[in-house]
Design a binder for these strands. Sequence first.
DNA 1: CTTGGCTGAATTT
DNA 2: TAAATTCAG
Length: 889
Amino acid sequence: MSSARSHVSMQSKYDRVVLLVDMDCFFCQVEEKQHPEYRNRPLAVVQYNPWRGGGIIAVNYAARAKGVTRHMRGDEAKDLCPEIVLCQVPNIREKADTSKYRDAGKEVANVLQRFTQLLERASVDEAYLDITETVNHRMQQMQSGAFALQPQELVNTFAVGYPNIGDYVNKITNRFANPYMDDERYQMSYDQNDLPAVRQSDIRLLIGASVAGEVRAAVKKETGYECSAGIAHNKILAKLAAGMNKPNKQTILPLAETASLFDSLPVGKIKGLGGKFGEVVCDTLGIKFMGQVVKFSEVELQRKFDEKNGTWLFNISRGIDLEAVTPRFYSKSIGCCKKFPGRNNITGLKTLQHWLGELSSEINDRLEKDFIENNRRAKHMVVQYVQDIDGEEVASSRSTALKDYDQESIVRFSLDLIRANTKTFLRPGSESALNNAIKFLGISVGKFEAVSSAQNRLQEMFANQAAKKRRISGEEPGQPPQVQMEKKQKQTEEVKMKNFFANYLQGAKKEDAKADGISVNPLAAASAAPKKNFVEEYKQKLHEAVRTEAAAEGTVLTSTPPEFKESFFSQYLKQQKKTGDQGSVTSKEDSLDVQGLAEELDAIEADNSKDFEEDTEEETELTSDIHMSKPEGQSSDAGQEQDPNTLSDSTGKDVYVKTDIVLPPLTEDELKPSTSKRKFDEIESSGSNYKESYVEFAVPNLRIDLLPTIKCDQCGANIPDEVKSLQTHRDHHFAQELSRTLRSTEREERTQIRQKISPKPTPPKKSKKTAGSGSSSNSTAPPSNSIIKFFSAKPTQEQAPSDPQMQQCTECKAFIKCVDMPEHLDYHVAKNLQRELNQQDLRTRTAALNNEKTSPAQTKKQTQKKLNSTISASSSGTKTIAQFFSQSN
DNA sequence: CTTGGCTGAATTT
DNA sequence: TAAATTCAG
């Protein structure tokens, strides 16, 4: 009954924002990074196997364009693509060694981990991130004006069901002006209690996408690897979305789009339904698409399958998946295996011992490494084997406890287990011939237990503290420092934001006067929008595309058709290139303002295309997991298409024009629905609700910053008067000592790096000329009612603070006073050191922590109280979105 | 003459 | 609990 996986409550089904990060053809990228000379060439990774050039296990996008796929032999790939580079996975101990890729995966995961403690590694190249907290935080900041979306973070973003991301943004913007735009539909499709979450779904997912953009940028910058991502309210949908635009893209799956998506989504595309169960489902229900499942009642499904699966299906078909993102950085088991097919069957005892020795050796190596990193030892081992018994393949597995182990004991255990469970182990009359040939061997170890010592305990605490700091500094990169700047910055941002809303409404009002007012109530007004509905139009087109395509090839098309796939921003740029002779689209004020932004975007894209010149697949590779039939001819040969300047023709204009919807006018009265305030407040309380059923959030959040402090006798710093902080602080000094040499060399490296990447565009502060000449897009134009105002005009993060005393930390991007930089770097050094020495499964630790504490619920309540009071104190001067909507200013 | 090889998690019995 | 099976990457 008790399923091992934890779930959130049904009530929180739309409360989370979940990210699935998926590395693009990861093994290939690892090889390309290792061999820069291979970059920009078609490449595949093969597992060594003398037959037909080895088996392909990964293909980069340049090679895919030539038709190379997995399930191919190296030779076939050569036929299709003679210039292809075939990388062999290294062979150690006569078997494939994938440690290189495991390490690379860990490198990536280390970056991901900075963004949330709720990181679940799903495989070597995939991870789920629950970013709900960050999103909620930014949501609040957005309301206070302290945070604005950065356009460059959405450059590679798509939203399912929308031709481009701009349309999606547009829709959200419109809903800001009229929160009840879609309520009629909402109330028909959703439970009353879900409406608050439903109304905020889109904006929260969009913020999630901006986080995703940062995550992916960080991965790219720090590891060199590119990845795709999916953003949704749960794992299943995030995973689904991530596959829809690849590579190096991210995809939002809006709540309201899941139903129509599922209507034509083959059942097998859902994770968990890709195998036998999925087929059984299709057969017994007589269906093909996910959307068809909704016709069956829950009990019906439970009767046809079992209770658990029935409920699961029922929920999934509605886009509901409650499975929690379970923090796990390290695997629960370590194993390796090898097949011995055909003539390679193991028939002799000596051979068996040899291979057991090889496998054990690898296991042992990996266990050693794991022990150093994670302070844990395996307590259990399993040996699996397939024997040939009377021509039949018989699989078996036997296990035993492990207390102490080394390579030899693992071999011995394995052999003993096999021997003890084989009726006649040796062929009668022989001392060395096996009675049953072995066709497969595997050893895996698991059930790890932490080795605890006083030393480890200290390190544990240190890790805790480091994690906490990471969380604090990671959540809002670059926030703490800019002190003097901050005030001014924040103020203007806030004003901007307010102006945005205010102007939006005013603009609408003006238009109202012109277009002899029609509207009576907001709902009617929205639905009676004179302009065409793009979603509808898009779907219509999509439908046509589906029909022709399906007719042609018998496949189903559910993803965005290629001709719609240009990013909003590139289209936007195109539009701008046409130098506003299209005056009717935007006001003059707007187009001025917009011009600046266009330049900026131009720069961004130009920069992008410079950075990724080699990325031929970027725009041309348009296949997705779902859109299986790929037009052959169109892949052209790319590379040059990247330049925005060459993009200036074709459909761009039309699409852009359509994105710039102007809503019908609204009067002030119409803008304050009577129930508005209460409904929007509901989500604030329900927003934190999901945590209560979310086990991981039961970890008490100690607010050490609220505790009294005492002075450290070594450095005079004020330390929270609490045993763990004190110990941690002492560890800090200890680490300082320990890493002195390491630190200085690292520091050198850092300064070198910093100098290398020191932003050329930042002009020397002294230059007197630059002050007034602001021809740049920087000059703050008055806010207007274009959706552009939704974004901040400048990426604030990248702006170096004017104070020459400040430096940006290359590690965490925070701005630090120069004098404090050494100490700040020490923190990172210590953190890294710590990570090297002792990386411990977060969850087991927090679980232990929980048990120590008195009732977690109580603690939580207390800290919650404190938090609430501080929050309300600090935000007393700010307004909620609801207030923006309901008031008339 | 295959076999895509290997890895890891989870569920069911 | 141990063993077998399934699923996915």
